[in-house]
Simulated scan of single mutants.
Amino acid sequence: MMSVTSTYPVGLSRSTGKNARLKSALAEVSIVMAPGCFDCLTAKLVANAGFGAGYITGSGLSMSALGAPDMGVISFGEIVERVMRICDSVDIPLICDADTGYGGPINVIRTVKDLERAGVSGIQIEDQAWPKKCGHEPGRKVVDVDEMVGRIKAAVDARDDSNLLIIARTDARTEFGIEVAIERALRYQEAGADVLFVESPESEEEMRRINQSIKAPTLANMVEGGRTPVFEASKLYELGYKLAIFPNSLTRMIAKQGAELMQTLKQNGATAAFSDRMVDHRGLWDLFDYPAWTDLERKFANQ
């Protein structure tokens, strides 16, 4: 019997090998840049710009899916559904913000298994108490360090692919200082975390101190207007970071540019003033692989 092989557009066929590619990239003499995305459109923008990884931002998911700030409002079920669609839409590894793991050790195990099946290549879990808050906002509370160690051990044990990265984040800096935050990160490294994420250091000196103390790969969180200085990738690499996320850069740009477009349309009744800042009809459809989809349709039509 003749076999038929087909190449399906991204969005119909989940690619393999993403986990190993991300882990391998972290071992190279460079820094991995992972801009934030919150839906298939923003993930496409990240991938098409040539980035080797992306970051599925929890705050972006909450804002775009619910119209709510990053305060633990979005449910895990809503997150998994959206994450699966985002992972299917691009052929680059994606890291997913999994907040606190959504409960005790059993919940963490389910979180890791469901997100791994959804297609992510890295899962970030933090030591905040629930309901969590944005890492650059006040009022965050952290759990006992042993509780977070249990979360990390459960996450490491739950993954099916050892190449899936477990990223441990601590939010202890703001309330307890940088030394306590580093001590916590080192405990999480001992528990098996692949990447350490000390959230919201407040100076270049603190960022350098983090990387002098931690010998595992570290993550820098670049939040425009947040608590941490925003540096370019080469500077972050010089400071010792191996991974840099820019979680809401696209969100902020879309919010500002979209607001200006809507105001212009309301005042002028037209969008012509923004035409040079838009992709045209064909450009938008091609962003989503329209030729590949039409070729696939044509292949099986009228058989």
Rank of each mutant, 00 (worst) to 15 (best):
N221T: 05
E175N: 12
T294D: 09
I214G: 14
F231R: 05
R227L: 15
L164K: 03
Q257H: 12
G192Y: 08
D289I: 13
I152T: 02
K215G: 14
Q257R: 12
F176E: 13
M253K: 09
R209C: 14
T251S: 15
D161Y: 07
A270H: 12
Q267Y: 14
M222R: 02
A272F: 14
E224P: 10
T218R: 02
Y241D: 00
A193M: 07
V198K: 03
A244N: 03
R277H: 15
R252H: 15
I166R: 00
A158M: 02
G283K: 03
E183F: 08
E179N: 06
E224H: 13
T174Y: 10
R252Y: 14
L284F: 10
Y241E: 00
I254V: 15
T271R: 13
R169W: 01
M207E: 03
A154N: 02
D276V: 13
D295V: 14
A244W: 02
A273R: 07
L243T: 01
G150T: 09
A168W: 01
E238H: 13
T174W: 11
V279N: 07
A273W: 06
D289S: 15
S162H: 13
E179C: 02
D161I: 10
A244I: 02
R173E: 07
T170Q: 00
T271L: 15
S234D: 14
R169S: 02
M222H: 01
V195P: 01
T218G: 01
L287I: 09
T170K: 01
Y188E: 04
R159T: 09
E204H: 11
D289V: 12
N211E: 10
R277K: 15
S162Y: 10
E199N: 06
R173G: 08
G225V: 03
V223W: 05
A255Q: 06
A193E: 07
A233F: 08
F274N: 01
K256E: 11
R282F: 11
D289M: 14
T174E: 13
T271P: 11
R208G: 06
R282M: 12
A216P: 00
W285T: 13
Q263I: 08
V198Q: 02
A255R: 08
R173Q: 13
A292C: 08
A154W: 04
A172G: 05
L243A: 05
V223A: 10
A154R: 02
R208Q: 12
I152D: 02
M148E: 10
I245Q: 03
Q257W: 12
R159Y: 10
L219S: 03
I167L: 00
T170S: 03
G177L: 07
M278P: 04
R159N: 09
E179L: 07
A155N: 04
E204Y: 11
G225L: 04
P217Y: 00
I178C: 11
P291D: 08
I167R: 00
L243K: 00
I210K: 00
